[in-house]
Simulated scan of single mutants.
Amino acid sequence: MNLSPLALLVLELLAEREMHPYEMRQLLARRGRDRRIRVTPGSLYRSVERLAEDGLAEVVETSREGRRPERTVYAITGAGREAFAYRLREMLAKPVDEFPQYPVALVCMHALGKQDALDQLARRRVELEAEIARSQTTGPREVFMVDLDYSQAIRRAELSWTTQLIEDLTSGRLGWPERAAQ
């Protein structure tokens, strides 16, 4: 089963203890997991429901307190634990093509014209430098925050690569098509 990143995070939480989706959303935000994927109430509830439909999670309790909406508490199943571990191992071990926006912008930048593209790349370089400076971590590190280290490494690599691209375009080492916008 190909679990989505959100489904994986839900199963991670349910592996800790039984909980309802509202509590899951709060915990994901408190732990900063929402900086990795977009978590909306609708997407979270759909993901939990799909996990239940697929037999990876199950309803353990439904209750209502006063006028509050009904609250459904879920637990992970044995199949859910197996699917979680399998998908997690797969995601850690196998590189996949992801589709970030920057490469798409790079293949289209010639449509702006060389100087405009250089101006935008310079702005990106400044933004990357600021993000790197803001994200410097101090103090003891824990495995729960290793994604921040990864983000820092990716940002530093992107900054280095973008700086080199600017230099290559400015010096002429990288050609600019004559028919492209000037």
Rank of each mutant, 00 (worst) to 15 (best):
M1W: 02
M1K: 07
N2K: 14
L3Y: 00
S4V: 00
L6G: 00
L6F: 02
L8H: 01
L8A: 01
V10L: 02
L14V: 07
E16F: 04
E18S: 14
E18N: 14
M19V: 02
Y22G: 12
M24F: 01
Q26N: 13
Q26Y: 05
L27T: 11
L27S: 06
L27W: 00
L28K: 00
L28M: 15
A29W: 09
R30V: 08
G32I: 09
G32Y: 08
R33M: 04
R33A: 05
D34G: 05
R35A: 11
R36N: 04
R36A: 14
R38T: 12
R38I: 12
V39E: 01
T40I: 09
P41E: 15
G42C: 05
G42Q: 13
S43W: 04
S47R: 00
V48F: 01
R50G: 07
R50F: 02
E53I: 05
D54L: 11
A57L: 06
T62M: 05
R64C: 04
R64W: 01
R64T: 08
E65M: 06
R68G: 09
P69N: 05
R71P: 01
R71S: 09
R71N: 07
T72P: 00
V73L: 00
A75C: 03
T77N: 03
A79V: 03
G80F: 10
F84H: 06
R87W: 11
E90R: 05
A93K: 13
K94V: 15
K94G: 09
P95H: 07
P95E: 04
P95S: 06
D97E: 12
P100N: 14
Q101F: 10
P103N: 09
V104H: 14
A105D: 07
L106S: 10
V107R: 14
V107D: 05
C108Q: 15
C108S: 13
C108D: 15
H110E: 07
A111S: 14
G113M: 07
K114C: 02
A117I: 02
A117M: 03
L118E: 06
L121W: 06
A122N: 08
A122V: 07
R123V: 13
R123W: 10
R124V: 06
R124P: 00
V126H: 14
V126P: 03
L128V: 08
L128T: 02
E129Q: 12
E131N: 10
I132D: 02
I132T: 02
A133L: 06
A133R: 09
A133M: 04
R134D: 10
Q136L: 11
Q136N: 01
T138V: 14
T138L: 09
G139R: 10
R141K: 08
E142F: 13
E142C: 03
V143T: 04
F144P: 03
M145E: 15
M145F: 15
V146C: 04
V146M: 08
D147E: 07
D147H: 11
D147L: 06
L148D: 11
L148Y: 09
D149L: 10
Q152R: 14
Q152L: 15
Q152E: 15
I154K: 13
I154D: 11
R155Y: 03
R155W: 03
R156T: 13
E158F: 08
L159Y: 08
L159N: 05
S160V: 11
T162Q: 02
Q164L: 13
Q164F: 09
I166R: 05
I166G: 04
E167S: 11
R173E: 10
R173H: 10
R173M: 06
R173Y: 05
R173W: 04
L174I: 03
L174F: 04
W176I: 13
E178W: 08
A181T: 15
